[in-house]
Design a protein around this nucleic acid. Structure first.
Length: 216
DNA sequence: CACATGATCGCCT
DNA sequence: GGCGATCATGTGG
């Protein structure tokens, strides 16, 4: 048995998510975009595509739900009160890096790091879709999104702008109706529970969470 | 629909 | 030792 990497179970992306970014005409965001206000980044990447290259093929899905985590003042964030441990270290990197963590003994969650280096904020990717290619629920939730794309903690700290195997592509011209709500699964976070930092495509069937939080 | 529960283990105090 | 930025399943209204 391998002594390490036991938390990264499936590395293989779901074959139904195969696509070609060039055919889709997708391009990447500039670095400075990821330096912007975290809530703004979270909102803007609704409609963007998270993509992974595996065995020379690209797999990806359109992001339909995100949450912003604001760092030292945000009791829901792993970087709350400046916590800086090996696991959280990627959150302190320059915007545009990836932060992946393992929770509940069985799931991984992927985040896009924001702001300049040293400011530990990030956007959690909560749900995505690939209409007419995959079932609406395949990537409906942060753990399922990682599982479907085969993203694991081994990818934490990777630079999305380094022409590597995981990238984020800008949406084509589109204007999704954006819904906003409090964040999910952070009831322990005191006052921060109510902060309106969750963003979603109000017309997507792939959005996760209770019905009460899916209204625009 | 809401709510409750079990699974499962790395991380942090 | 306790607990999670979750999920699937089960119950009840």
């Amino acid at each position: 048995m391998s002594p390490v990497g036991t938390t990264d179970k499936s590395t293989t992306p779901d074959p139904r998510l195969r696509f070609d970014p060039e055919t889709f005409g997708l391009k990447q965001f500039p670095r400075k975009f990821f330096h912007l206000d975290t809530a703004r980044v979270a909102r803007t990447i609704i409609g963007a595509w998270i993509a992974r290259r595996f065995n020379k093929q690209w797999y990806g899905a359109r992001i339909v739900e995100t949450e912003a985590y604001l760092g030292s003042t945000d009791a829901a964030a792993h970087s709350y009160r400046g916590r800086r441990t090996p696991r959280v270290e990627p959150m302190y990197m320059e915007g545009g890096h990836l932060y992946v963590f393992f929770v509940y003994g069985m799931h991984c969650c992927a985040n896009v790091v924001t702001r300049p280096a040293g400011i530990a904020e990030a956007v959690l990717l909560r749900a995505a879709e690939f209409p007419e290619q995959a079932p609406a629920k395949l990537l409906s939730g942060p753990g399922k999104l990682c599982a479907a794309l085969g993203i694991g903690v081994r990818h934490s700290g990777l630079d999305l702008l380094a022409a590597g195997d995981i990238r984020l592509f800008r949406p084509k011209r589109e204007n999704p109706r954006i819904g906003i709500s409090r964040r999910i699964g952070v009831d322990y976070a005191g006052e921060a529970v109510t902060w309106p930092l969750r963003f979603f495509d109000a017309d997507s069937p792939a959005v996760s969470g209770p019905r009460s939080l899916r209204k625009p």
